[in-house]
């Protein structure tokens, strides 16, 4: 199986990585770059725990080949916060009590950030729809939805 050398911007920094054909973006982030904030929940594009931004749009990183990401710009949960300041979606989910076990949280935050980027003032229905690909088993979603509403007001 062939290996490919790719150049990729991750959380603002340029990386060069050598990846085999069958490596997913999720595996590359977690295994090659130790960016373990991106979680592996199903490897099938169903749970959303591995959601990252690819050129500004959310994707299930388990459903993207690393080799396809040559020349792209990736943002993971580790890249959401600024130097000293959390992203408003991070701050809001803390304040709203939308974190429990925390395993779905990185993917939720990425989906929420992407939603607010394309729609700064979403209605509740739009928030629910935007999060439908992020399964959470702990919270019942109530406080997560509240947190996105709160972050939109920031």
């Amino acid at each position: 199986m062939a290996f490919h050398k790719i150049n990729i911007t991750i959380n603002g920094g340029l990386e060069q990585v050598v990846v085999p054909s069958n490596m997913t973006l999720m595996q590359m982030l977690r295994e090659n770059l130790a960016l373990t904030g991106t979680k592996n929940g199903c490897s099938a594009g169903e749970c959303g725990a591995c959601t990252v931004l690819l050129n500004g749009e959310p994707v299930n990183s388990c459903m993207v080949l690393a080799v396809e990401c040559d020349g792209t710009n990736i943002v993971t949960v580790e890249g959401l916060a600024g130097d000293q300041q959390l992203d408003p979606v991070q701050e809001a989910i803390i304040q709203s009590g939308g974190v429990q076990c925390g395993f779905c949280t990185p993917g939720i935050l990425i989906s929420a950030r992407a939603l607010l980027d394309r729609n700064p003032d979403p209605a509740e229905e739009e928030i629910r729809e935007a999060l439908v690909g992020n399964l959470c088993r702990c919270t019942g979603y109530v406080r997560i939805i509240e947190s996105v509403k709160a972050a939109a007001k920031v």
Partner: peptide
């Protein structure tokens, strides 16, 4: 279809 992040692909 599925979810927003799946529809990106």
């Amino acid at each position: 279809v599925a979810s927003y992040q799946l529809r990106t692909r």
